[in-house]
Every structure is written in structure tokens, then in C-alpha cells.
Design a protein around this nucleic acid. Structure first.
Ligand SMILES: NC(=O)c1ccc[n+]([C@@H]2O[C@H](COP(=O)([O-])OP(=O)(O)OC[C@H]3O[C@@H](n4cnc5c(N)ncnc54)[C@H](O)[C@@H]3O)[C@@H](O)[C@H]2O)c1
Ligand SMILES: NC(=O)c1ccc[n+]([C@@H]2O[C@H](COP(=O)([O-])OP(=O)(O)OC[C@H]3O[C@@H](n4cnc5c(N)ncnc54)[C@H](O)[C@@H]3O)[C@@H](O)[C@H]2O)c1
Lengths: 256, 256
DNA sequence: AGGCGCTTGTGAAGACGTGCACAAATCGCG
DNA sequence: CGCGATTTGTGCACGTCTTCACAAGCGCCT
């Protein structure tokens, strides 16, 4: 499969040519470390011990150190990690030294919110195109970008060097959109539609599904409720009522 | 090894008081199975083999069978799983037999999209309250619900039996909102703000962070690109990086 | 009834991820 | 200049998750 992807890619300088083979679990945590590090940098910290960074990122400090050790990062014993240096390291590993262009397909309810989100820009990405199939939406301007028709994708993909596609269409259209993205050389897709996408090998898909998150929470609610219910008498868990745990509620103000 | 629960009579009144202790990884996949099963039911399937359900859910069939075996589900050898029965089973385990009430806090850009999302209702939840701190937003009606002030949370939480809180405020306000939710007895939180929340034990928090997803994709893009590129190419890209990073001592970590 | 093909449920093995605990490295200070 | 306080990096043991492979169970067809 041809993946002619050659974004103005400046080859890395002679140093650090090969990317370490990071465990997937580590990769998933690096962005969290990065966010925490940016916070620390803004509050004037020049170095941070693993313990501090770990708690800012919500993980265990041993895990953090192991993660960082995987990317060959150098902390200083007795001191900690250099915040600015570590930011550079992680951004490099994550490939954020180039600002990747994102195409957002499906500018409906959710798409509008995403298009207006500044977290894209501030964290290494650039929304390069808004695309929709509905002629009524084409031409609308959002946040300085004009919505264009999905059929223009091939041209836009080349012009803008689209690296990542975001799908925010109804589930029924998602597979077709994915196919179109793949056809123009996109090898990374973030899918908000509640469906499984099938893509050729070499294409990465990540999925965000709000309802799944809620259902996982629901499971734990259910389990928590069934634990507080009478274990021996076999009271029906189906009728778990809010009053069940109401006794543990509290004062309205919490120490700020 | 034969400690199985009662064969699932459809009306599971009084039976099955205790929830099996499911592996977390399994719990995270059940919602996906459930969605696939609903699709199958709508297309007229009465039974489905593990292979079919697995591919509809995007997983390996052995994994699917093991997952289902954990919840004591009964398939029929030589046939497969009864779609309707399995839907009931999974919905029961996930605690979806009661429609949980969700409070959405922060009705801004993203909050509007969520409030208008029908995937809540169709998958077991009910948006019971929209809350915001901005007086200008209070009173606005979205999808039949009126935005109310966050200070009304304590009263509303009781009235509506809020089970789950969704935070869609700026990161800076998220911890405070979480505290308020916890104070009124909410023990499950879905957080869209890019920050770590600290909550008392017994409260579950799940986080959705769009930028993190993109950064993970970016990493894989980067890795894919570095594999196809020549390792020796010159050209400076590390413009913003301090010299110490690439040039000096990082070398030894390279596995040639 | 009996055999045959299909599919589930699961034991076992291996891959992967986590967390402890401690030696090695570094800094600041007397 | 050496010492103690501090913090990193990692070996190791343990737990969780995935995957393979196959016996056991089921229905259908002859
Ligand atoms: N709204 C939310 O908060 C939310 C939350 C989670 C998930 N989702 C999911 O995100 C997706 C979008 O949700 P929404 O509420 O924005 O829906 P929507 O109907 O408001 O918007 C969908 C948009 O996609 C466009 N579209 C349809 N087919 C297309 C195609 N082939 N090519 C390009 N564009 C096409 C439509 O014209 C429309 O503008 C859905 O799959 C939904 O389940 C939404
Ligand atoms: N917009 C997106 O697509 C998107 C995507 C991913 C993540 N996020 C995150 O979701 C959050 C919301 O994003 P947004 O774009 O909707 O921001 P927004 O500024 O448009 O909306 C935030 C809303 O929260 C309200 N708010 C502020 N403090 C509050 C408080 N203490 N109690 C109750 N309400 C309060 C504000 O009045 C406002 O209405 C942010 O943390 C953002 O980083 C947004």
C-alpha cells in the first residue's frame, strides 16, 4: 500500500536517530507527564523529583521513573529531572516537534465543539481542515476555518499534509470516511463514532466513546451498591436506591 | 470449579445477588460487546458465534469467550450465544437495568455538544441536570433541559438521584467541581478537563482527554516515519532544543 | 441412534505491566 | 574533602492480560 507521506520532514539531526521501542502503556502515559511538566514549568519549577511529577500526573513514582528510563531520559540523582529538558525529550519522542495537521470530518454537534477547541493548538496540533458531506454545512466558517466538502479531501490532504484524521460523523458514515482518509494516505485516525473501523495494517485507530466510559462507571456503581447491600440475606441488587449510601454524604464545603 | 450462578432466567428477581469479580480489562470491553450485540439484534440475528461477535466488536474470539465466561454467561456449543439473552446479561452486569441519572457540569463549547447528544439516552443514561457557574448561561434551555446554577447541585442531586457526574469545565475549575460532586454523594465522575482530579477512596474517576489521544497517535506517526526514513540523513530540526540534548551524551543510549 | 461438524469453555504458557526495595550517583555543607 | 541526605535507575517478584490449542458439549443429518 502506498503511503506517500513526506511532510517537509526535516530529518533528525545526526543525534538520536532511532526511537526507542517504548511499551504501549508508557506511551499512553507520556502525554500526561508532558501536561504536568508544562504546568510545573509555568509555576517556575526548574527541576522536579519523580515523586512530585508522579503525583502531578496521578501515577506511582516508581512507574514514572521506569517510564522515563525507557526513553533514555536523564534525571539527576539527588536532584530530580530538569523540567525544560524533559519537556523537550517527551515532545521529541511523541513527535510533537512538528505541528501535525489534523483534518476534522463531520462538523455537526460534536464537530463544532472540537473545531472550537483550543486544546488542539496548544498541545501540538493544527486543525487544517473541516470537512462535511452536508452541502448546507459547507461554507460555514468556524473559528477562522471554512467548512469544505468531503470530496475535496484528496486535494486538501496534499496541500495541508494531513497527518491525522478525526471522525465525528454518525457511526453509519464512519467506515466510509475512514476509507476515504486511508485512501489519501492518512495513517492515524481518531474515531468518535461508536463503531469499529476496519483499516489496513499500518493504520492506527484510536476510539473515544463517551457511552462506553459511562457504562464502565455504571458497572462500578453497580458493584459498589451490591457490596453495601446485605451480603447474606440476598436482598435484590436491582432495587438499589439512592438512600442506600445516603448516610455517607456530607458537609457542603470542603477545605479549599 | 463449578461454582456457577443460577442459569439466567430472564426475570432475575432475587437471584444473582453478588456480582462476579470481573477483570478490569473485561469490564472495559463489555460495553463494546453490548453495542455490537444491539447491532446484531437489529439486523435480525438471534444467535451469534464468538467469532462473529468478536469481529463485530473488534477483538480476538478467544478473548471474547474468556470475557463472557467470566460473567458466567452461557453460550451453546455448536451454536453460539443467544443475542437477546446476552444483551440482558451484560446490561445487568453493567448495572444498566436502571437508567442512571447524569449531571453535566460546565455547559460551554463541549458541554453543549454533550447535552445534545442522544447517545446518552439510547445507551442507558439520562441527563438529569445541566449545571454551570456562569449566570449568563443559567436559564438557557438545551434539548428540553434548563441550565441551572451549580449552587443548586445539592438540592438537584437529591431530587434527581444523581449517580454520575460529568465535568466539562475548564481544567482550573475541575477540582472544585469534583469536590462539589463528591460532597453531594456522587461516586462516579467522567472528567473531560485535562487535569488530574483527587478524590476520596471509593470514588471512581475516568478521564477523556482528546489531546492525549492525538499525542499517542502522533507518537506512532513519528515511529512509522522514523522507520521508513534513512537513519543517517542530516538536516537540523532540533531548532528549539538546547544543545545538550542531542549532541553530547545522549549517544550512549542508542542501540545501533 | 450414532456419527459428524461446529462451537464453547478453559488449562496452560507466555507476554506484558506494576511496584518494591535498594545500590549507585549526585549535591550541599561543614 | 569527605559525609550524609536525597533521589534516580533497575533487578526482581508478582499479578494481570492475552493467546493458543483442544477436550467436551450440542445439534443436525442420515
Ligand atoms: N455529540 C456528542 O457529544 C457526542 C459524544 C460522543 C460521541 N459522539 C458521536 O460523534 C458522532 C457525531 O455526533 P454529532 O452529535 O456531532 O452528530 P451530528 O449529526 O450533529 O453531526 C454529524 C455530522 O457529520 C456529517 N456527515 C455525515 N455523513 C458524512 C460523511 N459521509 N462525510 C462527512 N460528513 C458527514 C453530517 O453532515 C453532520 O454534520 C456520532 O457518531 C456520535 O455518536 C457524539
Ligand atoms: N471543546 C472541546 O472540544 C473539548 C475537547 C476536549 C476537552 N475539552 C475540555 O473540556 C473542558 C470544557 O471545554 P469547553 O471548550 O467547553 O470550554 P468552555 O469555556 O466553552 O466551557 C466551560 C464552561 O464551564 C463553565 N464553568 C466554569 N467554571 C465552572 C464552575 N466552577 N462550575 C460550573 N461551571 C463552570 C463555564 O461557565 C463554561 O460555560 C475544558 O477543560 C476543555 O479542555 C474540550
Amino acid at each position: 500500500m502506498s503511503q506517500h507521506r513526506h511532510p517537509g520532514a526535516p530529518g533528525r539531526a545526526g543525534a538520536v536517530p532511532a526511537l526507542p521501542d517504548l511499551p504501549e502503556a508508557t506511551v499512553a502515559r507520556l502525554p500526561e507527564y508532558l501536561r504536568a511538566l508544562h504546568n510545573l514549568a509555568e509555576t517556575g519549577h526548574e527541576t522536579v523529583p519523580s515523586e512530585g511529577l508522579a503525583s502531578a500526573a496521578g501515577v506511582n513514582s516508581a512507574k514514572l521513573r521506569k517510564d522515563l528510563s525507557h526513553l533514555g531520559s536523564y534525571g539527576t540523582r539527588g536532584v530530580g529531572y530538569d523540567v525544560a529538558l524533559l519537556i523537550d525529550q517527551i515532545e521529541y519522542v511523541l513527535g510533537l516537534t512538528q505541528r501535525r495537521a489534523v483534518a476534522l470530518v463531520g462538523v455537526g454537534n460534536l464537530g463544532h465543539a472540537l473545531a472550537g477547541y483550543d486544546g488542539f493548538a496548544s498541545r501540538g496540533f493544527r486543525i487544517a481542515a473541516l470537512l462535511d458531506a452536508d452541502p448546507a454545512r459547507v461554507g460555514e466558517e468556524i473559528n477562522g476555518l471554512v467548512v469544505r466538502h468531503i470530496d475535496e479531501l484528496p486535494r486538501i490532504a496534499v496541500e495541508e499534509s494531513i497527518a491525522i484524521g478525526v471522525i465525528a460523523t454518525p457511526a453509519q458514515a464512519a467506515q466510509r470516511v475512514a476509507d476515504q482518509l486511508v485512501a489519501v494516505g492518512v495513517t492515524s485516525i481518531l474515531n468518535f463514532a461508536p463503531c469499529v473501523l476496519s483499516v489496513p495494517e499500518g493504520v492506527d485507530v484510536r476510539k473515544v466513546d463517551l457511552a462506553i466510559e459511562l457504562q464502565i462507571l455504571s458497572f462500578h456503581e453497580h458493584r459498589k451498591a451490591s457490596l453495601t447491600a446485605l451480603p447474606a440475606t440476598g436482598g435484590s441488587a436491582l432495587t438499589a436506591l439512592p438512600g442506600g449510601f445516603g448516610a455517607t454524604d456530607t458537609q457542603e464545603a470542603i477545605g479549599t
